[in-house]
Design a protein around this nucleic acid. Structure first.
Lengths: 332, 332
DNA sequence: GGCGTCCATGAAACCGGTTTCATGATGGCG
DNA sequence: CGCCATCATGAAACCGGTTTCATGGACGCC
C-alpha cells in the first residue's frame, strides 16, 4: 500500500500537495491536480486512516451507544443509521450497555476513548444530567428520548400523541371503560404514553379511574401479570391500551387462556408495531413509529453537528395508528 | 489530555519506558513500574488510540460485515459479539451490504480501509472464492456458513441436521407424506436443510417425491406462494417442513384462509425460532439455533486468529427442536 | 579482581498523514 | 518598467504513540 510520499514522488510534487488534492478544498492548479489524480489512481493509493486521524485528531467515525441491542427494532434503526453514515464515509462503532447505567457510562467512555467524532445515544439508564454534560463536550444525538436542556440534540417520538391516538381509536369505537397497561413509569416514554391516554379520556369527559391503570415493565410477562391483575379487579373494562406490543402479547395470552374473546369481549391496542404484531391471531392493532425516518434524521443531524452547525430543536416524529383486528366496536 | 511524554517527564523516565509499562510485557523494574503507574493515574493518562494504531499498525477493532442488519436475529448475534469483543477491549465497526454482492464487497473494502484487525462476515452474496482469498489476507471469521477451503474460519450451524430433526419429528408422529418448502437452493443453508429432510425420509424408506419439494425464498410471501402451489397440486400431504419461520408463517396464513386446521389437518415445522414463533396461534414448532454461543465462538475465534494462532476447524453447532403446537400425530 | 553477559533504560527513528510558514512565480496596476 | 499583492507549491514541524538499537550498570564466574 503506497504512502502519500510515494504518490508525491510519482507525481513529481510534494506530499503536501497530494494531501491538498485529497481534500479537494485548498486551491491547487488544474494540471497539478490532474497529475496527482493520475498518480493516485495508478498506484491505487488510499490514505491511512490512522495517520489521518492522528494528524487531524478526528476519527471519521461515530459511536452508537445502545441499551438493548437485542431489542425488537434496533436492527431497523441500525440499518438506516449505518447506510446514512456510510454515504458520508463515516464509520459506525457500536457499544452496548445492557440497560445498566454503569455499563452504559462505560460504553460512552469506551467510545470517547476511541476519539469518536460524535455519539448517538439510545439509552434509558443514562441520566438527563449526564447527557446534557456530554452534549457540551462532544457532538451528540439522543435517539428516541427528549432531554429538556438539549432539545436540539434529541430525535424523539411523540409518545404522548401515540397514547392519545390509541385511546381515541378505542373511544371512537364506542368504548367507555378503557384500562391502561403501562411500562415502567420512571421511563419517559411509558409516562408519556400514559399521559396521552389520560388526555384522550379527559377530552371526552370520561374520568380517569386509577384502578384501571396498571404499571408494568414493557415485557411480555409484565403484560400477563398486568392483565391478570386487571381481570382480578372485576371491573367493567371493555378495552385495554398496552404500553407496547410485548405487553399486549402477554395480555392476549391471558385473555385466550381465560376464554375472553378478542376483540368481541375485549379490544386491545399495542404500541411499536413489532414484526410479531402482524402475525398474531387476531392481528394486533398498534401504534407505529417511523423508525427509519427517525434514524436517518439522527444520522444527518449528527453529521451536521460534527460539521459545526448549530441546529434548532427538532420536532418530534409522529406515530400513526395501524388498524388490524384486535379492536372492535362496543355498543352499550 | 496528557501525552506519553508528559507522563514520562512527570515520572522521570523516558517515553519508551512508559510505553513498556502500558503494555506490561517487556521487563521493567518493579520500582520504575510503580513510579510510572503513579504518574499515569495521577495525570489520568489514556493513550491516544490513533497514535497507537499508527505506530503499531493495528486498529484494536474488528469489522462486522452483515447482509441484513434488520434480520430477525442480528440483534441477538451482535449483542453477544459486542460483549465478547469489548471484554478484550476491541471495538466493533459495522458495515452492511443489503444482500447485494457489490455492496457487500464495498463494505469489506470500507472496513479494510479502516485497517481493521480482523473481519467477521455474515454475508450470503460474497462468493466462496472471495472469502477464501480474504482469509489469506486478514484474520477472518465467516459466520453461519461453511466455506470448504477455510473450515477453520467458519462458525456454522449444522443445517442438514436441523432439517433432519424437523423431518424426523414429523415421521415420529406418524406422518408419511411430508412436503418441504425450501429457501432459495443456491443458498447453502437452504440446500442443506433440504438434504436433511431427504435423509430423514430415506432412513425410513420413504421415497422423496419431487412434487412435494417447493423452492421459495425465505420470505413470508414465499411461504404463502409455496403453500398455495402445494395445495393446488392436491397431494395427500399431511405435514410440511418449512425453510424458515417466515415461510412457515406465510404457510399458516394460507392454511388459515383455506380453513385447513393446524395441526389437526396439517402439521408444520419452522426453522430459526424467531421471536414470533412463540406467539402465533397455534405456537410454531421450530428448530432452534444456538446463536449466542455461535456468536461468542466467532468472536473468540477471531481474537485468537488476530493473536496469530492457527486453529483447527470448528465443529458445526447443533440445532435443537422446539416442540410447540403446530405438530400433531397422524394415524393412517 | 577482571572480564563477559544480561538486563533495564533512554535516545531517536519511525508510522503516514496534516498544516503552517516560507518562497518563488505570476500578474495587475500605476 | 517596476513594485506589490496573490497564489500555487514545497519544506519541515507536528500529531503521540512504538520499537530498534545503543549504552551503562549490576552481577556472575573464573
Amino acid at each position: 500500500m503506497p504512502t502519500i510520499r510515494e504518490v508525491a514522488a510519482h507525481a513529481g510534487v510534494s506530499p503536501a500537495t497530494v494531501s491538498r488534492v485529497m481534500k479537494g478544498e485548498v486551491p491547487v492548479s488544474a494540471d497539478t491536480r490532474a497529475r496527482v489524480e493520475v498518480a493516485i489512481s495508478a498506484m491505487g493509493y488510499a490514505p491511512n486512516a490512522f495517520a489521518r486521524s492522528l494528524a487531524s485528531n478526528r476519527l471519521e467515525g461515530v459511536g452508537l451507544v445502545i441499551s438493548h441491542l437485542a431489542g425488537p427494532f434496533m436492527g431497523r434503526v441500525m440499518m438506516t443509521l449505518e447506510a446514512t453514515l456510510r454515504r458520508a464515509n463515516v464509520s459506525l462503532l457500536v457499544a452496548s450497555g445492557g440497560g445498566e447505567a454503569a455499563r452504559e457510562q462505560e460504553a460512552v467512555n469506551f467510545l470517547l476513548g476511541r476519539r469518536c467524532d460524535g455519539l448517538i445515544v439510545h439509552a434509558d439508564a443514562l441520566s438527563d444530567e449526564t447527557l446534557t454534560a456530554l452534549a457540551t463536550t462532544t457532538p451528540l444525538v439522543v435517539f428516541n428520548r427528549r432531554v429538556p436542556d438539549i432539545d436540539a440534540h434529541c430525535i424523539s417520538l411523540d409518545n404522548e400523541y401515540g397514547g392519545y391516538l390509541a385511546t381515541r381509536h378505542l373511544l371512537d369505537q364506542g368504548h367507555q371503560s378503557i384500562a391502561c397497561l403501562t411500562g415502567p413509569l420512571r421511563q419517559q416514554d411509558a409516562a408519556e404514553r400514559l399521559a396521552g391516554y389520560q388526555r384522550a379520556l379527559h377530552e371526552r369527559g370520561i374520568p380517569v379511574d386509577e384502578q384501571a391503570i396498571i404499571e408494568g415493565d414493557f415485557t411480555e410477562q409484565g403484560g400477563e401479570q398486568g392483565m391478570m391483575t386487571l381481570l382480578a379487579r372485576e371491573m367493567a373494562v371493555t378495552a385495554v391500551v398496552a404500553g407496547n406490543d410485548d405487553m399486549a402479547l402477554g395480555a392476549m395470552t391471558i385473555l385466550r387462556a381465560r376464554g375472553v374473546a378478542v376483540p368481541r369481549a375485549m379490544s386491545l391496542v399495542g404500541y411499536d408495531n413489532e414484526a410479531c404484531a402482524r402475525h398474531v391471531v387476531p392481528a394486533l392493532t398498534t401504534v407505529h413509529a417511523p423508525l427509519e425516518e427517525m434514524a436517518q434524521a439522527a444520522a444527518e443531524r449528527l453529521l451536521k453537528l460534527i460539521a459545526g452547525a448549530s441546529l434548532p430543536a427538532s420536532t418530534p416524529f409522529m406515530p400513526t395508528l395501524i388498524e388490524r383486528e384486535t379492536v372492535g366496536p362496543w355498543r352499550t
